[in-house]
Amino acid sequence: MNEKIIIIENLVKRYPMGETEFTALKNINLTFDKGEFAGFVGPSGSGKTTILNILGSLDTPTEGKVVVEGEDVSNLSEKASALLRKEHIGFIFQSFNLLPVYTVFENVELSLLLLKKSAAEREKAVTAALEWVGLQDMARKKPPQLSGGESQRVAIARAIVKRPNIVLADEPTANLDAENAHIIMQTMQKLNEELKTTFIFATHDEKVMQYLKRKIHLQDGRVSKDETMETKTLQL
């Protein structure tokens, strides 16, 4: 399993700051294999969100090359980057960002609607995704009726329902208590193992870190350490 799903070469990201520029990412070189369970860790402001957004083609590199799923995201058109996200990338955010007027089922269904799947396919995939996160009984509820942990599990279902190759999760546990944080991480770990989905996190939460098989330490926009943990699966 050595297929490179992401290749980052000499990535630099600069933001204009009035007269001058601020360099958020400084010459990053990394690759990710298919099926990794990795994360960017580091203090606030070290560039974790920035690099995750670039990997998700929500943002573009200033310099260097970033290849995701064989697509060079540094010069993708708006249309092409939308297509890449639509087909291959699932996002999980810190604040769950479910749409309050829609039911759990409809929230999860949305990305399949964008992919123009048939009603039968959608029904099947959404049910499966909700089962994965253990929320099959909550399909008809609306987000305001859910707890934080349940909400984030719906967000996970929404991210994986289309079976993306890559899931990008920015601080997915920041709004959760310890117990729920563990449940979330275990759910994702299970998905990673059984579906071979590549997970890339951005976090400074110890609870998340202990599940990661690879920790990429960022410090002031540079990779200061890239450590691969011995393979161990935490069981509760």
Partner: peptide
């Protein structure tokens, strides 16, 4: 705003 953001992140085109 959030809804639009989510939809964009999911790969819906801005247009």
């Amino acid at each position: 705003y959030n809804e639009f953001g989510i939809r964009l992140a999911m790969g819906e085109e801005k247009g």
